[in-house]
Write a protein that binds this DNA or RNA. Structure first.
Lengths: 106, 106
DNA sequence: CCTATATATAACCAAATGGTTATATAATTG
DNA sequence: CAATTATATAACCATTTGGTTATATATAGG
């Protein structure tokens, strides 16, 4: 299973995804967009690949990265569902613990 | 600014939120729902409080935790917008790099 | 074919993370 | 008021994370 939270948990990785939204990019182009080193970017790209948020292919001595739109759709659904589920039925549970007697000390 | 990704980045914290969805809970009740120690749970609760995903109040020698529904709505909106933005306009950018000449070696 | 260059990888480091045990503090209750 | 109990906190630890520099590998091009 891909871990959306891991992939999106880092600001740089979120920015890489935003950059790739503009269009596919070589690693070199991505590196040039950030202030951190090539190996640091490479590690972020590896995480994004592991979590399948992006794909890549080799083109000569370049490696080109692209958003994995399909999986982003799934990620989107998963996170939306998670938070969405937290939000409904809140009215039902709001009544608990409003009175002292509601806390059972055992 | 609250960091939704930090808050949701840990499985235990996501489960705590799910538990709180059932209704407000004392720390003791939360601790009993997990296999890890009270201080470990406390740390997760502190993170969730820092990121404002939950609120708490003292009730005697108990501390009661609740979902911060309002902030969860904002988080929901933020993530929705972030991923949503990544997904639209993909068709526009798909044309790049499909031909060799698209890679400029400088 | 040699050089330049894009990428990959190794080795290292500091700080953050997620856990532990032990103990202190504060409030309830018999 | 003493004992119990819920919470808070301190000190510690192993692992992960996000970065670094240095170097190796592979391909393109003059």
């Amino acid at each position: 299973m891909t871990d959306v939270y891991r992939a999106l948990g880092d600001q740089t990785r979120r920015e890489i995804l935003q950059l790739l939204k503009e269009g596919n990019k070589t690693q070199k182009e991505i590196v040039e967009s950030f202030a951190i080193s090539q190996p640091a970017i490479k590690k972020h790209l590896t995480v994004l690949l592991e979590e399948k948020m992006i794909t890549s292919y080799v083109h000569g001595r370049f490696r080109v990265y692209s958003l994995n739109t399909e999986l982003l759709h799934e990620a989107y659904q998963e996170m939306l569902q998670y938070i969405g589920d937290l939000l409904d039925d809140q009215l039902v549970s709001l009544k608990k613990y409003v009175e002292e007697g509601d806390i059972r000390d055992d």
